[in-house]
Amino acid sequence: MKRQIPLVIVFVFGTLMVIQYFVPHENSEIVKGFLLDWIVIIGIFALALGLWSLVQVSIDKINSRKENWEYPLVTLISLTVMIFFGFTSHAEDASWWGYFLAIAVLLAALWMLAQGLMGNAANRNVKSLSALGLVIVFSLLAIFDGSWEFKFYTAEGLTNQMFVHFFDYIMIPLQATMFALLAFFITSASYRAFRARNLLATLLLISALIVMLRFTPGPWGEYLAKTSSWVMNVPNLAAQRAIVIGIGLGIVATALKVILGIERGYMGKG
């Protein structure tokens, strides 16, 4: 039973979606809309699982005090702080001290809570109790400090100055720099891998060279630009098409195997 029901669900919904493709009637569009909505909503619950996994793995590492245990702590702190920013709004010209104090109390409370519930340290009860105390302090701050407040129902957190700052000055530079590493990696990869070892490697090498030299100024460059545009439009097009067709068939075959229950590997039955 435990194995059968999921297979039936896969078959029913898979077939339903295939049939849906051929039926233009509005009822068919409506059914598809519902299914897609459900997937989005399942995603919400899955995200909770995901974050829980991240927190759990981090806390385990911290508690083990193994090498590099400090870094998961950075992750957890930044996670908490950023979520706090996202759910709060700060009065425009009010002082920031109350806001930062609240963050500090919140972090301390969570730290104590993690120690009290999951830690292996002594006096866990004391830690749990102090966590409770800190949570009360935090709640009082949230209620009585007028300079900031929680906003769960309006997306004001997204425009919270600190939230925007963290996005602009932490996420964007990190993201862009991580991506920019590619400039270096593509250089070292071409140095390491483009060697004329055999016919195939030589073909790879030559076509890469032609394309790389395509915008060299001068008549030589113009000739290479034409050649590389031919390479892109003719042999490249042909091979891409072969790959595209192959992938299309691979996807159809895999989807079919899944719907028919021939392929069950995604449910752990190999």
Binding site: P6, V10, F11, V12, L256, V258
Partner: peptide, 17 residues
Amino acid sequence: MALIVGATAGLWMVGYF
């Protein structure tokens, strides 16, 4: 999980073909 996998398999199958 089965719903997601089944529905997407069906959704992509014909489209990609």
